[in-house]
Design a protein around this nucleic acid. Structure first.
Length: 496
RNA sequence: GGCCCGUUGGUGAAGCGGUUCAACACACCAGCCUUUCACGCUGGCAUGCAGGGGUUCGAAUCCCCUACGGGUCACCA
């Protein structure tokens, strides 16, 4: 039997890193085994559904390159792929369960249930549905039904056998039936709950493996019960560890201390492969000969992935590491491709556009300048959008001097070095990197200062910083006028 | 609180009873390279695998207890 897995999100918002990783694991697992990966939308909570959420979800996945074999957008022979379009398939199962008395209508109101819950809590008891509607007589039930009293359908959890199942990651799991209340499978508006919808959907779609987050672990016995009640085979389960924030807590969508939406990474200029790569390493690691490597393409991940190399403990999300992974991809890519990727950022960068205009760079020349700049910063970028902050070095009108730079400028050789250097470049007709390099050499000869003593004063003066890309290139891209102007400013300050 | 799950360094993790078992990577620190900077390279960074008991000739690796952390207890998914 070929493997069939699914990612089944609810369309309530943006795709976040946890969902993306769950989807990724499903995808990798399916592809590894030559099976099918399915996207299914669980939209039974109609009040929380957001109109554009599905579209955003799909766009995010497309960007990541995690394509599905069946889904709401492309269909498939097990469709439809949205719960709300599958209402007809739930009804017969619901009717059958009620007819077999495996489920029953419950007429309790939300207020009643809430009150019971609070009372139980107050007495230190575990809040659990009393099961009182299960024991209604046929007459009582009939009269309430004809009275059109709103009701839910609850699943009757009977007996006291253990519910056991195998989890691919956690091994043998077992729960007590007595710990599970008669849970609602159909809401009073006639829409099934998640528990019911997923199990029917999984059963009808011949899902063989359910790979999902650990937060579902304690829901699983309910699903097992349901599969058994409708006489369908129970799929295999794999509950993957949660992704945690730096405090070791499950990510909350409201937590703003961490970038957790895929869209944000897209906007910042992360590469989809890098995101997949990092996410795959959260809770999973390749064994064998690849154990010392960290950078894997999607195809490579497919080749290496296996469920039994998934960790049990939750993993803390580390943005630094993601950035590093991304930087590896940026360093590895060709310059032309990088330029293409920086284009949208640079086009929207008014300072850069002004810089080009000011230096009278148009058309091909502008393109050439962009090329030089991107090449200069390729090794210094963690994300494509970094180009905008890095490039400020050249676009900014007035340099701002940081502490380290100011410290350098107090050194005694500074006036000598600056004077010699400015005099020489003033006379330079061909202001280009190679010529600048020669000039620096000449200054060294003339003044006797070399190394840090020579370069630092000039770097600090020209850029306001002691760190930055290659000096010759930097001075060239800054332009002669700006460099001379800044030298002059610094000289005035040193004198006064 | 009940039920479940987990616990190797600041972080991701390797390790699945015994020839360096405490890899590798991020971060951090130091050095090298570079007449500067960055990239890169090299090295340092857990005397101990939450703690305590066992089992065993031998345990991070098996068992038990405790502690701590997390998840979940909805007509949400």
């Amino acid at each position: 039997m070929t493997v069939r897995v699914r990612f089944a999100p609810s369309p309530t918002g943006h795709l976040h890193i946890g969902g993306a990783r769950t989807a990724l694991f499903n995808y990798l697992f399916a592809k590894r085994l030559g099976g099918s990966y399915i996207l299914r939308i669980e939209d039974t909570d109609t009040s929380r559904n957001k109109a554009d959420a599905e579209e955003k979800l799909i766009r995010a996945f497309q960007w990541l390159g995690l394509t599905w074999d069946e889904g709401p957008d492309i269909g498939g022979k097990y469709g439809p792929y949205r719960s709300m379009e599958r209402l007809d398939s739930y009804q017969p199962f619901l009717d059958k369960l009620v007819a077999e008395e495996k489920a029953y209508p419950c007429f309790c109101t939300k207020e009643e249930l809430e009150a019971e819950r609070e009372a139980a809590q107050k007495n230190g008891q575990t809040p659990r549905y009393s099961g009182k509607c299960r024991h209604l007589t046929a007459e009582e039930r009939q009269s309430k039904m004809t009275g059109n009293i709103p009701h839910t359908i609850r699943f009757a959890v009977t007996g006291n056998r253990e519910i056991g199942f195998q989890d691919h990651i956690r091994g043998n799991m077992s729960f007590q039936r007595s710990d599970i209340e008669d849970f609602v499978i159909c809401k009073s508006d006639g829409i099934p709950t998640y528990h019911f919808a997923v199990t029917i959907d999984d059963a009808l779609m011949d899902i063989t493996h359910v790979i999902r987050g650990e937060e579902h672990l304690s829901n699983t016995p309910k699903h097992v019960l349901l599969f058994e009640a409708i006489g369908q085979p129970v799929p295999e389960f794999a509950h993957i560890p949660l992704i945690l924030n730096e405090n070791g807590k499950k990510l909350s969508k409201r937590d703003e201390t961490i970038l957790q939406f895929i869209e944000q990474y897209h906007d910042l200029g992360y590469l989809p492969d890098a995101v997949n790569n990092y996410l795959a390493l959260l809770g999973w690691s390749p064994g064998g000969e690849y154990i010392e490597e960290e950078i894997f393409s999607l195809d490579k991940l497919v080749e290496l992935f296996s469920l039994d190399r998934i960790n049990k403990a939750g993993a803390i999300f580390n943005q630094d590491k993601l950035a590093w992974v991304n930087s590896q991809y940026i360093k590895a890519m060709g310059l032309d491709e990088l330029i293409k990727l920086t284009k949208p950022y640079l086009e929207k960068n008014n300072d850069y556009q002004a810089y080009l205009k000011q230096n009278e760079l148009h058309g091909e020349e502008a393109g050439e300048r962009t090329r030089e700049l991107v090449a200069l910063f390729q090794t210094g970028m963690n994300q494509i959008s970094d180009i905008n902050t890095l490039i400020q070095l050249f676009t900014i009108e007035e340099a701002t001097y940081d502490d380290e730079a100011n410290e350098v400028l107090t050194q005694e050789q500074v006036p000598v070095v600056l004077a010699a250097f400015s005099k020489k470049i003033e006379q330079l007709t061909d202001y280009a990197p190679a010529e600048i390099k020669k000039t620096l050499k000449a200054v060294q000869k003339e003044t006797g200062f070399k190394g840090k003593q020579l370069f630092m004063p000039i770097r600090a003066t020209a850029t306001g910083q002691v760190h930055g890309p290659d000096l010759n290139q930097t001075l060239y891209l800054l332009g002669k006028e700006k460099v001379l102007e800044r030298i002059e400013n610094v000289q005035k300050q040193v004198v006064s």
